[in-house]
Simulated scan of single mutants.
Amino acid sequence: MQILLVICLIGAAIGSGLVAGIFFAFSTFIMTAFSRIPAEQGIAAMNSINVTIVRSPFMALFVPTLILCLVIAVLAVIDWRGGLSSLMLVGAAFYVIASFLSTIVFNVPMNDALAKVSGNGPEAIELWATYLRDWTWWNHVRTIASLLASVAFVRALMIV
């Protein structure tokens, strides 16, 4: 069980750290760059990213990291080890709730709404402005949560 735990913690630390880095790129320069181009071009670029990402290696990182976090949470509960188990649960919660679930609940519906819009009419421009603000805010949440999950898993590895 110890070897399984260490492997899961290493995988989750790396996975959540990589996910944090991807989200960080969007939060710090990709969305800012999109805000500087005309709405029609920004919408087209983001829609292209949203179609591409679900067929990319990102999904082979994002979903398996979720699975590792769920395994870590179960291991923490069935073999409670005080502070170690607490770190494991905190890391899993940050990733599962604030990173993965917030993606499903907030970012994906915004992406779906954006996919229905094209052109540069007033409706598209208004939606794009709202999308940039709200999507980026939730992306900041995902970035910080994924990073905190990675930190919690690394800290747990220091205790194991």
Score class of each variant (00 low, 15 high):
Ile22Cys: 12
Pro64Arg: 01
Glu123Cys: 00
Val160His: 07
Ile67His: 04
Met31His: 14
Asp112Trp: 09
Leu70Phe: 13
Leu4His: 15
Met110Cys: 02
Leu148Thr: 04
Ile22Arg: 10
Thr52Met: 13
Trp138Thr: 08
Val74Pro: 01
Tyr95Gly: 04
Arg55Cys: 10
Val71Met: 12
Pro57Cys: 05
Ile22Leu: 15
Val160Met: 10
Asn50Tyr: 04
Met1Tyr: 14
Asn107Glu: 06
Val19His: 02
Arg55Asp: 13
Pro64Trp: 00
Asn120Lys: 04
Phe26Asp: 02
Ile7His: 01
Met1Ile: 10
Leu87Pro: 02
Gly82Val: 13
Ser102Lys: 03
Met158Ala: 13
Thr103Cys: 06
Met1Ala: 14
Ser56Cys: 09
Glu40His: 08
Leu114Tyr: 12
Ile104Trp: 08
Ala98Glu: 07
Val117Leu: 14
Lys116Glu: 06
Ile37Leu: 04
Met110Trp: 15
Met46Val: 15
Ala156Pro: 00
Leu148Cys: 05
Arg133Tyr: 03
Glu126Tyr: 07
Val117Cys: 03
Ala76Met: 10
Val117Met: 09
Gly83Lys: 04
Ser85Val: 10
Leu68Ala: 09
Ser102Ile: 14
Trp128Asp: 00
Ser86Pro: 04
Thr65Glu: 00
Val51Trp: 13
Glu123Gly: 01
Gly17Thr: 10
Ala124Asp: 00
Ala12Gln: 02
Arg36Ala: 13
Ile10Asn: 00
Ala115Ile: 10
Phe29Ser: 08
Ala39Trp: 11
Leu148Gly: 00
Ile144Arg: 05
Val19Trp: 02
Val141Phe: 06
Ala92Thr: 07
Pro64Glu: 06
Trp135Gln: 07
Phe100Arg: 01
Phe58Pro: 00
Trp135Cys: 05
Leu101Ser: 03
Trp80Cys: 07
Ser56Arg: 06
Ala152Arg: 01
